[in-house]
Write a protein that binds this DNA or RNA. Structure first.
Length: 254
DNA sequence: AAGTTTGTCAACCGCCTTAGA
DNA sequence: TTCTAAGGCGGTTGACAAACT
């Protein structure tokens, strides 16, 4: 199957946006919204592809974008979240109001990575390491929940139940989880998460034994096969659990 | 002052996921 | 169930500016 081009390239402009184009795009979106990005440029009278319009809007023109340098707190938050989430910039951005994934990615590559490289590994937060160690313990001590008797919750249900603080991350599919695991595995400081990473929830305080209750309470959306849980959501879950337990209370504020 | 290197960041590219027909 | 369009994501590029030689 040949992938259709994202847009009709002929005659469409590329490169930096002009002030006039910005104004046109902003006016159009403020007036009509952005229901269909592909159709938008034509309707707005822009010689750009929809993808370019979307990027310009989400990374620059959106009214809730926070401009200017990152504060120390924001940088610390990025570092800590990167420790947890790896290169999942959109997930990190979801926890930094007003900042875009692109911006965070740039800050990471231009500032934070270098800064961390200068620091010796031992200078990183003890609490971060304790968090990583805690997660490693789960990997060592827990078994995966794969019982076919447990009815998978829908991704939508799961997302709304659980990850309400994550804006638009692509949660919920086996492939995504695979991708997440790849990211995690490639992160230098991250514990490797095997298939047996996730605990037997029936042994946990928050979960009851019945599959019906599990379906309701289990925040992981155990969609089919493989890992049993949605890794992204599970990461959030464990992270919040640790915070509740007072392990990393002052690490990051959500 | 001119040339070169380095840093920054907006924008693009290609792949993946999702929704809907 | 399959196919396709659209949206979203992370990696990468390239233009520009600042710093350096």
């Amino acid at each position: 199957m040949v992938r259709a081009p994202c847009c009709e390239k002929m005659g469409l402009k590329k490169g930096p946006w002009t002030h006039e184009e910005d104004q046109t795009l902003m006016c159009y979106i403020q007036r009509y919204g952005h229901g269909n990005w592909r159709a938008l440029p034509k309707l707005a009278g822009l010689l750009r592809c929809g993808k370019s319009c979307r990027l310009r809007w989400t990374n620059y023109l959106r009214p809730d974008i926070k401009r200017g340098n990152f504060s120390n707190e924001e940088e610390e938050t990025i570092i800590n979240l990167h420790e947890i989430l790896g290169n999942r910039w959109s997930a990190i951005a979801a926890r930094l109001p007003g900042r875009t994934d692109n911006e965070i990615k740039n800050v990471w590559h231009t500032h934070l990575k270098k800064r961390l490289n200068k620091q010796s590994p031992s200078s990183t937060s003890t609490k971060q390491h304790s968090l990583v160690e805690e997660m490693s313990k789960f990997e060592e001590n827990t078994t995966i929940l794969t019982s076919p008797s447990i009815t998978p919750a829908s991704p939508q249900q799961s997302s709304s139940d659980f990850s309400s603080n994550t804006e638009s991350s692509s949660f919920g599919t086996v492939d995504n989880r695979d991708a997440s695991v790849k990211n995690i595995d490639s992160s230098e400081n991250y514990p490797e998460l095997g298939e047996d990473f996730w605990p037997d929830v029936s042994s946990m305080e928050n979960f009851s034994a019945s599959s019906a209750d599990l379906q309701f309470q289990n925040p992981f959306s155990p969609v089919s096969t493989d890992y049993g849980f949605n890794v992204d959501e599970s990461m959030d879950y464990w992270y919040n659990l640790f915070i509740k337990a007072g392990e990393v209370q002052d690490l990051v504020e959500f």
